[in-house]
């Protein structure tokens, strides 16, 4: 982890205490998780106590305190997707990646999460890989989507 990079992120927000969540979000998108050293640095620079940072970092689901994979796979299990076969999509994703919801594989390639609705129910069942939606996805197509990930 590069402390200079963390400093740069803090600089981008003028080192303001009120920008704490924005700074954490930037670190999260840079590293896919919040390393302990980064949090210590943020606390030091922003004069925010560690307990406060931990409270925020553990409160929001957008933050992770453990390393996440390079590719984030979100499988929608909302009502519409559930009816349209989300469970089969999830099972296939599990078969291919070898990990279940909330887990990250040992090579840090994939992190799988279930989400409750992506807001595009007409496209169900929906799978989202690194922010890109794959609608009406058939279990047979999932392998090619995931194999395209490096």
């Amino acid at each position: 982890m590069d402390i200079a990079k963390i400093d740069q992120i803090i600089e981008n927000h003028n080192g303001e205490e009120s920008s704490l969540i924005q700074i954490l979000l930037d670190i999260q998108s840079e590293y896919h998780w919040l390393p302990k050293e980064a949090l210590a640095r943020v606390g030091e620079r922003l004069q925010v106590p560690m307990s406060r940072i931990q409270q925020i970092a553990s409160f929001y689901k957008a933050f992770s305190l453990v390393p996440k994979g390079r590719h984030e796979v979100h499988v929608c299990v909302g009502t519409a997707c559930h009816v349209r076969g989300a469970q089969r999509v999830l099972d296939t994703v599990q078969d291919i990646t070898g990990i279940g919801p909330g887990e990250t594989d040992a090579e840090l390639k994939f992190s799988v999460e279930t989400v409750n609705c992506l807001g595009c129910c007409a496209l169900g069942p929906v799978m989202e890989v690194d922010g890109k939606h794959h609608g009406n996805i058939a279990p047979s197509q999932i392998a090619s989507v995931l194999n395209n990930c490096e």
Partner: peptide, 15 residues
Amino acid sequence: CSCSCSCSGKSGTGE
């Protein structure tokens, strides 16, 4: 372990 969750060295991934 370098994770931030105070897990004191238990595996931080795949849990």
